[in-house]
Design a binder for these strands. Structure first.
Lengths: 201, 201
DNA sequence: TGTACATCAGTGAACGCGCGTTCACTGATGTAC
DNA sequence: TGTACATCAGTGAACGCGCGTTCACTGATGTAC
């Protein structure tokens, strides 16, 4: 029954929690992490401001939920980029590693406001769940490089921190207009050099 | 005359602009860059909210002023750190370079809220004046390394972006609890490796 | 040195606004018999 | 299958608040003569 469904859609939402998070992401993307308000998010979804309180204890809880979703999305973008790389040898593992970095940087710079929310101290990030998703990608990538003998043990050790620092730093500086995005290849090359991966160019 | 001075101190401030910026920094340091309000800043100084408008066109102008002052302070900290290094040879230039990085990281992690204001998209940074102060320090440091033959031309090229990305990234990740501060030496070592500077340890 | 006056640097009341959060409520849904 | 009722997922009005900004104003200061 169309009426039934329409009423249901209007009244008992069914997916309010997800809808609120999605709407919040739309608003953050547009107006920035400061300037986010529960009332605006509720209005965007078409629900009363107080409805949110059935799903989130307070505004901070919503913001943290957003943060965790964004970490997921970023990781998914990276996974897609890796999946596009064909082959299995040492050079494929290098290519995957590069594409992971490129995907990260591309996502960050194309979504500056979302990236600011993630890393600007706005949200509590659930380390166990989401940091480790980003972290695991990086760890696996480095492990693969090590397994193919592309990097040695001493470079493997602490590689995650080294790589993430450089890529995150470049993303952040580019977003804030302190580094031209076109310089990212330089940063990527320096990361490879610091890990002992020879550049082809 | 004491009375005269007291009245003057109360009324015509003389240094309101500076006082507002200083008070704002105190408040940002404590409560974060979001949560800064012109009214709170004015109250902190002991002046009416509208007084600020004789010195700053709007809130954003004050925030940008803060940002520029903070970039200065950070650069000054680094200059102090460099100044403590004795000697003139190649190894002194390496030591200076390391201390510059350490000073940057130490300042950032000890003032997370100030650092967030600088790099969180809150303020317009006056590139010509202040970015170049940070930039010039880095440029000079790298030039000195090159002059002493510690790094070669290909490493010198683009060195600023590479170093700043890594150090800024590590600072930001540490502040957000995504990297233990004790890992910074690893990052510093990797920077040196990527520039071709041999680690002593 | 004293006075008149322009300018400077503040005051304080008021504006309209959007915010987070609360509360008593009610319509829709699911379940037990 | 039908009914009674508990629970779920919303409504909407209201709260008190702090905000950025404006405006007409006034006391203090500096300057010209």
């Amino acid at each position: 029954m169309a009426t039934r469904t329409a009423i249901k859609a209007l009244y008992h939402h069914g997916n309010l929690e997800t809808a609120l998070v999605d709407a919040a992401i739309v608003l953050v993307r547009e107006y920035g992490p400061d300037h986010l308000s529960l009332r605006a998010v509720s209005a965007e979804v078409g629900v009363s401001p107080s409805a949110s309180y059935h799903h989130f204890g307070d505004k901070d809880a919503l913001v943290s939920a957003i943060g965790n979703v964004l970490f997921d999305r970023l990781a998914i973008m990276q996974e897609k980029a890796i999946a596009k790389v064909n082959g299995k040898g040492a050079s494929a593992s290098i290519k995957k590693f590069e594409e992971m970095g490129n995907a990260y940087f591309a996502w960050a710079t194309s979504e500056p406001n979302l990236y600011r929310l993630m890393f600007g101290g706005f949200c509590e990030i659930n380390m166990d769940e989401h940091e480790s998703k980003a972290w695991n990608l990086l760890r696996d990538g480095l492990d693969e490089l090590a397994a193919h003998g592309v990097i040695d043990k001493s470079a493997r050790n602490g590689g995650e921190v080294i790589v993430w620092s450089a890529v995150h730093g470049a993303s952040s500086l580019a977003i804030e207009g302190l580094m031209p995005p076109s310089d990212f290849p330089l940063v990527l090359k320096s990361i490879k050099r610091s890990l002992g991966i020879k550049s082809k160019d």
